[in-house]
């Protein structure tokens, strides 16, 4: 058993990472809610976000955390044509065709990353990223705390957007009953397109944060996708704040799993949790408290 300080630090780090993953999971969740689409390329959108952050820093010299709004827009702008030209024409054909298309997009992206950026593992390197932050027995890198804070702020912002704005109202109505929403005057395709863009932006921003705090490679997407799915299922579909809860829970359990069983078991905990929740609480742990 490692000493208590290391253990606590690991757990806090896990929770902070979970918060960042929750942001990417949120993107997956709103697309699933509105379009009934499990976006199998979502993990690769996260990787796109990390690469965009990396090159943003390289070419502009501006800190990617300051450039997050621009990065979000870039990733959304890359995703919207995918909706417009690949997904929208398949709208009448049921969710499988769209899901398979996004699967194909995922494998194209993954291999395009290797071809374009090599198979190297990278990280968005900033001086402050390695600075330690100590609070009592707990020591975590500063960037984890910054990343977590930004992720939570953005999750709250998306929560506000969905629960308080006109667009959010349209989004929730389209998710609940697309046909009725259209009859009441909502341009459902437009809502879906913007939702898809918003989902990608969440993935992109999450990717930049994760890229700054950790390492990423061209094939990291699958792991992000699966972790995001685990979080969505934990938090409950369509529950924005539940997603944050799911992320933090997953991060916590992963660190505990890593501490007690060995580091290699971190991801295993996530997958096992995902399947267990599907089997026993398919509506998520917070099914009662819908936002």
């Amino acid at each position: 058993m490692p000493d208590i300080g290391v253990a606590l630090s690991t757990i806090v780090s896990g929770v902070l990472l979970g918060g960042m993953l929750a942001l990417t999971a949120l993107g997956l969740s709103i697309v699933l809610g509105v379009m009934r689409l499990v976006n199998l390329a979502h993990g690769d959108f996260v990787v796109v976000g990390a690469y965009v952050g990396l090159f943003f820093l390289k070419f502009t010299g501006v800190d990617p955390l300051l450039g997050l709004p621009v990065i979000a827009l870039i990733v959304a702008a890359l995703a919207i044509p995918l909706y417009r030209f690949l997904l929208a024409p398949l709208a009448e054909r049921g969710p499988e065709a769209q899901m398979m298309t996004m699967f194909a997009v995922a494998i194209i992206l993954e291999n395009a990353f290797v071809l374009g950026f090599s198979a190297d593992t990278r990280s968005i390197e900033r001086d402050y990223a390695t600075l330690p932050l100590t609070l009592g027995p707990v020591t975590v890198p500063l960037i984890y705390v910054i990343g977590f804070a930004i992720a939570v702020a953005l999750i709250l912002a998306v929560h506000w957007l969905i629960s308080r704005t006109r667009f959010g109202r349209d989004l929730r109505a389209s998710a609940a009953d697309a046909q009725a929403a259209a009859t009441l005057g909502i341009d459902v395709k437009r809502v879906q397109m913007l939702t898809f863009g918003l989902g990608a932006a969440c993935a992109g921003v999450g990717g930049t944060l994760i890229g700054a705090a950790f390492q990423f490679g061209p094939s990291s997407g699958a792991a992000y996708l699966l972790n995001s799915l685990a979080i969505v299922v934990l938090g409950g579909l369509g529950n924005v704040l539940g997603t944050l809860f799911g992320g933090v829970t997953l991060g916590f359990l992963q660190s505990v799993g890593g501490l007690t069983l060995g580091d290699g078991y971190r991801d295993l905990v996530g997958m096992a949790l995902f399947l267990l929740v599907l089997a026993f609480r398919p509506d998520g742990f917070l099914a009662r408290r819908r936002s």
Binding site: V38, L40, V233, M271
Partner: peptide, 27 residues
């Protein structure tokens, strides 16, 4: 676990299952 929700989660469930087994073998 996989037959829940009439297939919406089946695809991702099978994906997660493969990942789970792989991680077990690795570890």
């Amino acid at each position: 676990a996989l037959f829940r929700l009439r297939g919406l989660y089946f695809t991702v469930g099978t994906l997660a299952l493969a990942e789970l087994l792989r991680l077990i073998m690795v570890n």
